[in-house]
Design a protein around this nucleic acid. Structure first.
Length: 895
DNA sequence: TCATGGGTAA
DNA sequence: CGGTGGTACCCATGAG
């Protein structure tokens, strides 16, 4: 589908006059001959391509596209050579292939064509885009970066210790791999060492990455001229593959599947996306690459309002608007300590206002309060980028923002969750406009970075007003895109209203008992020291146990615990928990090390870190929820991450005891969805057996064990239940038989048999899984109950690992994402009830399937009921939803 | 400051 | 034949 879609889109958008598809052949190329490792890599090409290729050829034949191959040369080289020749003849050339492969080729007439992803228009990458993307001054330097950094996909090694950032920096500074090697004396330390020791490898990598432009092949443009598609060939193919939508797109609505049964093989089919080359005469090119727009070459009216009269006039004007954009400039990124420096407003393209405030808190508050009425007006929509920040900030100034929201960051998160959503990138991509960088204003990150307040007001005005202007413009672009992707409703009914709830939860904060943590810390410290000593004694040496490097050397060099010890890619021994566990029987030092690690982790990450995160003003911990990072729709939590507080081990649970109610008159309520993901998979798959188990109120893991082992419910023993539980969870994530055997410590065959048996019993679930993958292959995305989308661009990849990843996501994203939908709806409804009823209880945490509240004892019962009802009733489903509500003085008791 | 290895949660 | 569930966050080390 990747190939098919891309092809259709190209034909439609670019309307190429000439087109060819280029393939590799089996014949060895110079790279194979010169570089052994590369050869090995290339020969590993998956055999399932073989099943796909017949379809591909039929498709290409159906579209009447010539195929070009050349023994001894790789497709990229052929395309490169032809592209250069075509360029000389005045053609505009589009290469469809990853940009890292073709970056070096891009020139005036050669572009990389990137097909549209849903919600994202098709792009052509020209010189400016490549330069910006790679941060280089010349397109040929793409291969220098690959020479240094390498490329895992194509098995190009690069130079060890040099990642993407370092590679870019070095190339910026020295220009090429050769020059870096020549000037290696200007480098320092390990970097210098690596460049010198691996110079040869760097050069080889560069050569491997270089596209050859001297393939002995002629450009016969006559033979590449486009011809009409051959319907007689394509129609049966589309029918066979069940490409209904595509068929309609190509042949119009009268196309229909003729034989729904002839679908054998479609499931395993793999349509890969070979590089294609499309050419069109230069004068027929519809749109030239747009030069980057920025503040200096774009007309704009940014107005500084520094008198109260002018500010009041603006406030009045805003009060008549249905919608406006606002943005605050502050002294810090932390909304709970930041102070306002100024506010900007925008409501028409190209025009914005900036209102500065003084450093004095009261006077800043007075200025902000001029806009209190419009900001609190429940009928006016507020547009912004990351509005949660502004809402939290303003709440500290006594302004309670109300009304519908439109957050451009979250809007884009719904349009395409896997990409980035910061304003600069959105502006570049959707407006073709490059905003003033914050770095230009306050300097680069570091100790010398200025405070927004230290910057000249004129400059801040330009920056701040531009921000509001861009955000306003983005909102105009993104809103229709939300509609196009059918996510507008999700945005307006769930994600945007949730912003208020999250702001509230963050503001409420969690109380932690510092004393509990301090004394626990001391206990841990004593244990850690004892273990340390034991380990030194057993090892016969003192070393830093927390250093994987030193630990590996002790275990495998000195103690020789495993002659076949595995190493990481940097040559260190692997010392992860799974590795150590397999060695536990060889020496009891291993268990000591594991214990040491556990305690050390607990102490440093939780016990000692949490007190430092208490806000001195409030005495509470205020985490920050990010609503736009997890591609499945889940929230994430930072500073601290309250979503990974230990619970599985005895000692870990101690940490939870330190999370307490705000005072003796309050208690914590913890409400937990029970097995929500399994219930959702049952509902989505409509598997009758699993639905029945839930409806009957059975323990689902026990019920599964009974089915898988073919025994009665009460005959299930603990082991069988444990195994069944592992399968249930494995299924959700698309775990393999190998994975299951690992996590259960049983032979792979046994695990495989269990999975087979599972699917026999729960045939609906197997059907759901293949349906999800099919849907993704057909549509390029999957969706949740509330139509939250996730695009899976790799779903048709030829690379088994990459494709497998996409396939697992196709199965998992709707489940995990629907669970996220559910709890988000519940959160909004609960918060509404709390406000409507004027309750004092507060929502203080969300942990994916759990909500925690800090409530007056007198409200505990009433709120428990509300919470349970709202969580159970969030979305009506064909499966009963169970919520467990617990109560206690601390989180552990409540959970 | 950055990369790496490791570990925690749902 | 080898590799074999995912995401997100945070910590310490080691070298700059």
């Amino acid at each position: 589908m990747g190939f098919t879609n891309t092809l259709l889109e190209l034909l439609k958008n670019q309307q190429p006059t000439h087109l060819a598809v280029v393939f590799d052949t089996d014949a060895p190329t110079s790279r194979h001959i010169e570089f052994e490792a590369y050869k090995a890599h290339r020969e590993k090409m998956p055999e399932d391509l073989a099943t796909a290729i017949p379809y591909i050829f039929r498709l290409i034949e159906g579209f009447n596209i010539p195929i070009i191959t050349q023994d001894g040369f790789e497709a990229d080289d052929i395309i490169g050579t032809l592209a250069k020749k075509a360029e000389k003849k005045g053609f505009t050339v589009y290469c469809m292939t990853p940009d890292k492969d073709f970056g070096q080729l891009v020139s005036e007439n050669i572009f990389i064509y990137k097909p549209a992803r849903m919600g994202n228009g098709a792009e052509t990458l020209g010189i400016p885009e490549i330069l910006a993307k790679w941060e280089i001054s010349d397109v040929s330097q793409v291969i220098d970066i690959l020479g240094l950094w390498g490329d895992a996909v194509d098995n190009i090694p690069g130079i060890p210790g040099i990642g993407e950032k370092t590679a870019k920096k070095l190339v910026q500074e020295f220009g090429s791999v050769e020059s870096i090697i020549e000037n290696s004396d200007k480098l320092k330390g390990k970097l210098k060492e690596n460049v010198e020791n691996f110079a040869e490898q760097g050069l080889i990598s560069k050569k491997l990455a270089t596209i050859l432009l001297d393939v002995p092949i002629e450009l016969d443009e006559k033979s590449l001229e486009r011809e009409d598609a051959n319907r007689d060939l394509l129609e049966p193919l589309f029918s066979e593959l069940e490409f209904r939508t595509l068929g309609k797109r190509v042949f119009g609505d009268d196309f229909s599947i003729t034989d729904a049964n002839g679908k054998t093989g479609a499931g395993q089919m793999d349509l890969f996306a070979p590089a294609t080359i499309a050419t069109a005469p230069a004068d027929a090119l519809p749109e030239p690459a747009i030069p980057t727009r920025h503040i200096h070459n774009t007309p704009h009216t940014y107005i500084l309002l520094d008198t109260m009269d002018a500010q009041q006039d603006l406030a009045k004007e805003l009060s008549h608007k249905k919608s406006f954009c606002f943005d605050t400039e502050t002294t810090s990124l932390d909304a709970l300590t930041a102070e306002i420096v100024g506010i900007s407003f925008a409501f028409e393209k190209g025009k914005a206002y900036y209102i500065p405030t003084t450093a004095d808190w009261e006077s800043a508050k007075a200025t902000a309060n001029i806009f209190k009425e419009v900001l609190e007006n429940p009928l006016i929509e507020k547009v912004g980028q990351n509005l949660k920040y502004d809402i939290l900030l303003l709440s500290r100034y006594g302004i309670k923002v109300q009304g519908p929201l439109f957050d451009t960051m979250i809007a884009h998160y719904l349009i395409d969750p896997d990409t980035r959503h910061n304003m600069d990138i959105l502006s570049q991509n959707y407006l073709g406009y490059s905003p003033v960088s914050i770095k230009e204003l306050i300097g680069p990150k570091g100790k010398n970075q200025l405070n927004m307040r230290d910057v000249e007001i004129e400059k801040v005005k330009e920056y701040a007003a531009e921000d509001a202007d861009i955000t306003w413009q983005l909102h105009e672009v993104l809103k229709p895109l939300l509609a196009d992707t059918k996510t507008l409703e999700l945005a307006q009914t769930v994600e945007f209203p949730l912003i208020y709830v999250l702001a509230e939860v963050e503001k409420n904060g969690v109380k932690v008992d510092v004393e509990t943590l301090r004394s626990f810390s001391n206990l841990l410290q004593a244990d850690i020291q004892r273990l340390e000593q034991t380990i030194y004694d057993k090892a016969g040496a003192q070393f830093n146990i927390a250093s994987p490097k030193q630990l590996g050397e002790i275990l495998f060099d000195k103690l020789q615990l495993d002659p076949k010890a595995k190493k990481t890619k940097t040559g260190q021994y692997k010392t992860g928990e799974d590795v150590l566990l397999t060695l536990a029987h060889k020496s009891d030092i291993v268990q000591d090390i594991l214990d040491f690690r556990q305690l050390q982790k607990l102490k440093s990450t939780y016990v000692d870190a949490l007190p430092g995160l208490i806000n001195p003003e409030t005495g509470f911990i205020h985490t920050s929820y990010n609503q736009a990072v997890a591609a499945t729709g889940r929230l994430s939590s930072t500073n601290p991450n309250l979503q990974n507080i230990p619970i599985r081990t005895e000692k870990g649970r101690e940490v939870r005891k330190a999370f307490i109610a705000r005072d003796a008159s309050h208690v914590l309520l913890s409400a937990d969805y029970s097995q929500i993901e399994l219930r959702l998979i049952a509902a989505l798959s409509e598997d009758q057996n699993m639905l029945e188990a839930f409806r009957a109120g059975h323990d689902i893991h026990r019920a599964t064990a009974a089915r898988v082992y073919g025994i009665g419910l009460d005959e299930v023993n603990a082991d069988q239940r444990r195994n069944a539980k592992a399968v249930n969870f494995g299924i959700i994530y698309g775990q393999s038989a190998f994975g299951l055997s690992q996590s259960l410590g049983i032979p792979r065959k046994e695990a495989g048999a269990m999975i087979d048996q599972y699917f026999t019993q729960y045939a609906g679930i197997r059907r759901y899984m293949s349906r999800a993958v099919e849907f993704a292959k057909e549509n390029g995305y999957v969706e949740t109950l509330l139509k939250r989308r996730r695009y899976l661009r790799d779903i048709n990849s030829a690379n088994m690992t990459v494709r497998g990843f996409a396939e697992r996501n196709a199965i998992n994203a709707p489940i995990q994402g629907s669970a996220a939908d559910l709890i988000k709806v519940a959160m909004i409804n609960i918060q509404q009830d709390i406000e409507r009823l004027g309750l004092q209880g507060k929502m203080i945490m969300q942990v994916h399937d759990e909500l925690v509240f800090d409530v007056p004892r007198s409200e505990a019962e009433q709120l428990s009921g509300i919470i349970r009802d709202r969580m159970q009733g969030a979305i009506a489903l064909e499966v009963p939803i169970e919520v467990e509500v617990g109560k206690g003085d601390n989180w552990l008791e409540a959970h």
